[in-house]
């Protein structure tokens, strides 16, 4: 269900006109921007799959590859959860409601949500890594009966860095187990202290289940290691990788990872496919 709106005869560099229609603070330095396409016809035919990303464009500053974090069944409003860390994302942090935010997309490979139906699913995320997985959670809630048990294992550095906290109870109301963990607690933190792989021990699934993970590479590596030690098979694991994505079209070469272009065959990969390259330093 990879979405696309660009006929191949047009320049792939063209952007869709769009604007910011809402801004929501998620965590220090992290905001979610609702983006609405200007063209009504395009808005009605735009579609995306969970895990795909857009190239958001701040004119005069540049583009940034940002995953779509909203409900794939409601693509008329697109949400992007962005941490202000670079040129483009820091400029975006100055955006006001009503500002234009042109973009092109969607790009990339999606989480294989359809293949997971009828089975248990574990989602393991760290920090902003929950953003590309939130469309999966929406997708499941929209067809909850089609899935087995679903776990969200989510960690961040501090309690205030946990994004989407206001939505956890809503997810739980749909029978999703949400477990959180932090590196460093504050006085109000009642949950466990540690790292996301620690939460795996609390999960009991009926195999064959599926594991989706996104977050810092070191976290994903230990989540996967933990799962494999618990008897999961490599092909049951999917992860979303990040590299410098300059064009998102497979032209610029920046996002190469071994034989893969992350923008084209990723960012979501089956673990078995890229496992040989994940082990190498500086690849």
């Amino acid at each position: 269900m990879t979405g696309s709106v660009m006929p191949p005869s047009q320049s792939p560099w063209n952007v869709h006109r769009a604007s910011v229609t809402a801004i929501h603070d998620e965590a220090p330095g992290v905001r979610t921007y609702n983006v609405t396409l200007a063209d009504k016809r395009l808005r009605n035919c735009y579609s995306f799959a969970p895990g795909q990303f857009n190239m958001l464009y701040v004119p005069g500053v540049g583009e940034a590859a940002i995953s779509i974090s909203s409900d794939p069944d409601k693509p008329q409003v697109l949400q992007h959860t962005v941490r202000a860390v670079g040129n483009v994302t820091n400029s975006l942090a100055q955006a006001q409601i009503g500002d234009e935010l042109p973009f092109r997309g969607p790009y990339g490979a999606a989480w294989p949500v359809e293949d997971c139906q009828g089975k248990d699913l574990v989602i393991a995320a760290g920090g902003i890594g929950l953003a590309p997985l939130r469309p999966v959670i929406h997708y499941i809630i929209n067809r909850r009966h089609a899935f087995g048990r679903v776990w969200v294992l989510y960690g961040s550095r501090t309690p205030s860095d946990l994004i989407y906290q206001d939505q956890f109870d809503g997810w739980r109301a749909h029978g999703i187990e949400v477990l959180t963990i932090v590196d460093r607690a504050d006085d109000n933190w009642k949950g466990p202290i540690g790292v996301v792989p620690d939460l795996l021990r609390q999960v009991t699934v009926s195999q064959p289940a599926t594991l989706f993970t996104c977050g810092p590479e070191i976290m994903m590596r230990f989540v996967i290691l933990g799962a494999l030690n618990m008897g999961w098979q490599e092909h049951q694991v999917f992860l979303s990788l990040e590299r410098n994505m300059n064009c998102a079209l497979g032209f610029c070469g920046h996002c190469q990872f071994g034989p893969e272009f992350i923008c084209k065959s990723g960012p979501v990969f089956n673990y078995r496919r890229i496992e040989p390259y994940l082990r190498l330093e500086d690849l």
């Binding site: 005069g60 540049g62 300059n246 032209f251 610029c252 070469g253 920046h254």
Partner: peptide, 26 residues
């Protein structure tokens, strides 16, 4: 070799912008 980067070029007012693809290197 096909690697490239896109540069963002803006006039002083910020009212006119241009994106240019240039050769880059790994």
């Amino acid at each position: 070799c096909f690697c490239s980067s896109v540069e963002e070029i803006s006039d002083l007012t910020g009212e006119e912008v241009r994106r240019e693809r240039v050769w880059s290197s790994c």
